[in-house]
């Protein structure tokens, strides 16, 4: 019964944050919310279906570049159009890529997704005329709810309207994902993770369901990527690089992949921890590598697993 109380407190904190917290911390919340959307989708694949993608940054890149191309080249400035367009672009790419990848599991799935991610990365990097090469492309400030918010400075826009817009998107994405994982479809995915043979014998088409999960997670990553592009301001190929894919898997693991809210906690912890570490010590990767090693070896349930330890044994699925 603690969950509703915790959720309401978190909700109130989120709503009041732009008023109470310094602007700097509010701007850090923007990438958190964008990654939150990405990770909800990634965990449908990782935690619920048991497939670990090492190329998911591909879809973040597609979402972010969709936003940049629409705002700078095509004059489409409404975020309400950009988000569906980013999700659609991710889905269009994910349909064939996913269909090929889900034929494999475990390390082969990871390698194939990594290879597709790197194809897109090299495309972004090398086709300078289309993509701006390593300099990338600018993401212009999008209109929200049909308004340009003309009176707002860059920071005021980000910590005001854009913050609440991102929050609304994250809440909607969370509610939708909650429905998905609780539906018969979500149960089928878990069965596939735990015992694919049994799922198959019960009449669940394993490759098709894996493909659905892949598509949904790609759509989430595309929308999250578009959401991420505005606070970043400039999208570049490193968004699609394989280490970025590794980092988002890290975030999921940090929070706890066997829990619904774990990935959100992971994104939050990753971004604020990274900011804290970088303010005192420039080599954040050293610390984060050690944290990741610690989690892998001693606490595979992540932060959620540590919190839950007192209540029930941590369940670590073996995909």
């Amino acid at each position: 019964m603690r969950t509703p109380v915790v959720l309401s407190l978190v909700g109130i904190a989120f709503l009041g944050l732009p008023v109470l917290a310094p602007a700097y911390y509010v701007t850090l919340m923007l990438p958190f919310m964008a990654y939150g959307v990405v990770l909800l989708g990634l965990n449908l694949l990782f935690g619920y279906t048991g497939l670990v993608s090492f190329g998911h940054a591909l879809f973040i890149g597609i979402g972010a570049y969709t936003g940049a191309v629409l705002t700078t080249h095509l004059g489409v400035r409404h975020m309400e159009l950009i988000l569906p367009a980013a999700a659609l672009a991710a889905a269009v790419v994910a349909a064939p890529v996913g269909a090929l990848c889900v034929r494999y599991v475990k390390i082969y799935f990871g390698m194939l997704t990594l290879a597709f991610g790197m194809v897109f990365y090299t495309f972004l990097l090398k086709f300078y005329k289309l993509t701006g090469g390593d300099e990338g492309m600018r993401m212009l400030r999008p209109y929200l709810l049909g308004s340009e918010w003309p009176g707002f400075s860059k920071t005021a826009y980000l910590i005001g309207p854009y913050y609440y817009f991102s929050l609304a998107v994250l809440v909607l994405a969370t509610l939708l994902m909650w429905r998905i994982v609780r539906s018969p479809f979500g149960l089928c995915l878990k069965t596939i993770r735990d015992n694919p043979l049994k799922a198959e014998s019960l009449g669940v088409s394993v490759p098709r369901y894996r493909w659905y999960a892949f598509m949904i997670s790609a759509v989430y990553a595309g929308a999250g990527g578009a959401l991420l592009a505005t606070p970043t301001g400039n999208v570049d190929p490193t968004l699609a690089y394989w280490t970025h894919s590794g980092n988002i898997v890290f975030m999921v693991l940090l929070g706890g992949f066997s829990s619904f809210f774990g990935p959100l906690l992971g994104a939050f912890a990753f971004i604020f921890l990274q900011d804290t570490v970088m303010s005192v010590f420039p080599y954040w990767r050293l610390i984060f590598g050690a944290v990741l090693a610690f989690i892998v070896i001693f606490a595979p349930g992540g932060l959620m697993g540590l919190f839950a330890r007192g209540r029930r044994p941590v369940e670590v699925s073996r995909a």
Binding site: T243, G246, L286, G289, L292, A293, I297, R318, A319
Partner: peptide
Amino acid sequence: FVYDRDETFQLLLTFALVLMLEDLIRM
């Protein structure tokens, strides 16, 4: 510590090494 673990965790442990070594070299 991870030989009998799922290969996802083994892969992520080597990714942790990638992160650490990159900054060790920079340092």
